[in-house]
Design a protein around this nucleic acid. Sequence first.
RNA 1: GCGGGCGUGGCGGAAUUGGUAGACGCGCCGGCUUUAGGUGCCGGUGGGCUUACGCUCGUGGGGGUUCGAGUCCCUCCGCCCGCACCA
Length: 818
Amino acid sequence: MSERRYDPKQIEPKWQQLWADERTWEVSNDPSADKTGEPKSYVLEMLPYPSGEPHIGHLKNYALGDAIAHFHRRTGREVLHPMGYDAFGLPAENHAIRTGVHPRKSTDESIAAFQRAFRSWGISIDWSREIATHEPSYYRWTQWIFLQLFRRGLAYRKEAAVKWCPNDATVLANEQVIDGRCERCGAEVELRQLEQWFFRITDYAERLLDDLDTISWPEHVKSMQRNWIGRSAGAEVTFRCEELEIDYPVFTTRPDTLFGATFFVLAPEHPDVFRLAAGTDHEQEVHEYVNRTMSESVEARGAAEKPKTGVALGRTVTNPVNGEQLPMYVADYVLMEYGTGAVMAVPAHDERDYAFARAFGLPVRRVIGSEEDELPYTGDGPMVNSGEFDGLHNREAYEKIVAWLDREGRGHASINFRLRDWLLSRQRYWGCPIPIVYCERCGMLPVPEDQLPVELPEVEDYKPRGKSPLAAAEDWVRTTCPECGGPARRETDTMDTFVDSSWYFLRYCDARNDEAAWDRRALKRWMPVNQYIGGVEHAILHLMYARFFVKALSDLDLLDVEEPFQALFTQGMILGPDGQKMSKSAGNVVSPTPIVDRYGADAARCYILFIGPPDQDAAWSESSLAGVHKFLGRLWRLGDQLSAEPSDAQAPADPQGDSLTLVRKAHWAIEKVTGDLAGRFAFNTALAAIMELVNEIYNPARAPSPQARRFAAATAASLVFPFAPHLGAEVYELVTGKRVWEERWPDADPAMLQTETFELVCQVNGKVRDRVTAPTGTAREELEQLCLGTRGVQAHLDGRQVAKVVVVPDKLVNVVVR
RNA sequence: GCGGGCGUGGCGGAAUUGGUAGACGCGCCGGCUUUAGGUGCCGGUGGGCUUACGCUCGUGGGGGUUCGAGUCCCUCCGCCCGCACCA
């Protein structure tokens, strides 16, 4: 019972302390610190939102990033690997409303829990750059960036129909509304006409779309972003209401169907609806319809199979191509926020228009021919009922009609985007104040930069009451005009927390700068992020906003990159042991703390990486974790056995027999792990290779020399270090007396990857019939003879005629018989 | 409906370029060590047939290309994710 055992509790705190004391993972902004000539590397995991204790998903995220960071360091790169906290946000504020505890207090407590966890997990963080977005030293610069965008007209205020969450009592960005419900609380979202702050992200739609081609992101994330940006090519065509002398431009992707337009529809929110209906027989009906629509929830209105409703306006517009008078309608299937809020309806060639025409008995006129008679028909074909364009293919007519519209001044080619401007103001307390003041005399003014930060005031009541809780801080709201010195009032809305997280990766580059948001040279050194890692739930919101910020800041000549995240990796979720998403209500939550306590951080980290491809979801399994722990214990015992006389653990000069086999296995593992880390995120197979190496060291059938064993054990420790840093450091030190993180990543010796012999696979008609050992590099003819001579092959030739022999050198021979 | 992805043992998964399907781990079976073991170690483990040598089937179904297909092509089925009245 005296044999010593692998005890992470002994090992892990020791190394954590050493790395903290020596500030091992700090890096300098001075490029001359780069000694190897390798390019820098910026490895970043999405910053956590500090709420309660870290969960198992955090462990996965940071274990992944840490493995990459360590690998990059060991291959000679200077690696920036920082950490911070996305500290503003609704959960802390809602908690404050419930309990009266200041959100700063609960947030800071959670941050402390995250700090303890990161340290106990042994994540290699440059702590000198730690930030939290709720600290004035950070949000001062969030406000500064807001002002830069404001000056350029990229932040603006306007009244619009906006999404309002009645539960959180705040407006939401379009991106925060999921299926008509609030992303945070699930309440049905309402539309309200309010004046709000926006960022002009739509100015960047084209670039946000095009530049997706320049970055290494998962295809599904790019596709989600493309979808969200929603670019459509078409034409803008002007229809005129002669009675009121108003022009109504519409956007259409099918100008070729213009002759088929039989009516015209406005969105209920269209500002002209009441004016058009005024004085007609339909006035009353229109008012009722619009009011009813507006009171409907966003979800109900957007329901997929909803029957078409609408009301005639009693007016007409003129079709520019043929002068026909088209009746005008108001209908809720037309959306104010897309295009111009008005559409020309071509029921013969559009499913929605067709449904509406059927419901209202409107004419349907085919203008594109097709083989079947069925309408609506949305495909291509020859033009009919289209005057001078009859007979042309519709694609050709498309161009000709657009050209005609252009000449006549009735329209032009146009591109439309689904993307809306980013609504950034929130009527909530726990966020970054918007640095704007309103003066009765001078109007809306930015807070002068030397007065930043505008600090968040203390309030007694966090509860939102339809306006920001900040409005209650009267002393804070009342201020003086920076222009005239007269009385002025502060903006009381705060910013969406996505603003805070849209630039934090820039701040890490120069986190302690008190003079500026950053020194441009620091950004030049570190940006862009080489590898970004996080959950796919941020595929649209955060990742789109951050891209927009970087592009806007680049246009303001404040930085030198066009894209923040060169490569992105989206990790899968860890599911509960039942294969379901972890949740308190399901009672299947696995907390990392007791796991780390029982098995150690190294085992927990390795298990999460070993469980399967990291981009896939995986169910938690404690017995598999125990298996990984056993593997680490075996490796540790090797170190323990070999620790009597630590030495260089050089590979033996000329190994033979079992020693050669083991040394080769070590080189094979180096090659495998290096490839898995460098070329792809194949941590599971990398760990499997290290397990194979350790199994080979223990193989009872072989007797390698002590030197070969020592070399193999040191190699295993070196390779396992990115995944299990404490154990890797411990075993490497036991065997060699050296610090593994100061050692260059091992190189596989190509000579050792070759073997003198190989197992020749002998096939007949593609089926394996025998195997035989042959010297590597044997000539094709000899291999053929060797194969034909085997018993298994002979048995299956059975006198039949050999039609062909396929030889793959050093691999297999396939004999084709008839 | 549109877009992205997936389907391999009892389970998680491996097979990177078309070349030995099932690496590695869990679980299970057997053995050794131990006073004892929820420990450690060793061996076995896709299905069927066979005393054995072996044979045969096998990567969601069907078809195709190829000397050879988990991998490529066509088609069908099932599942997951995102968007969805976007004119």
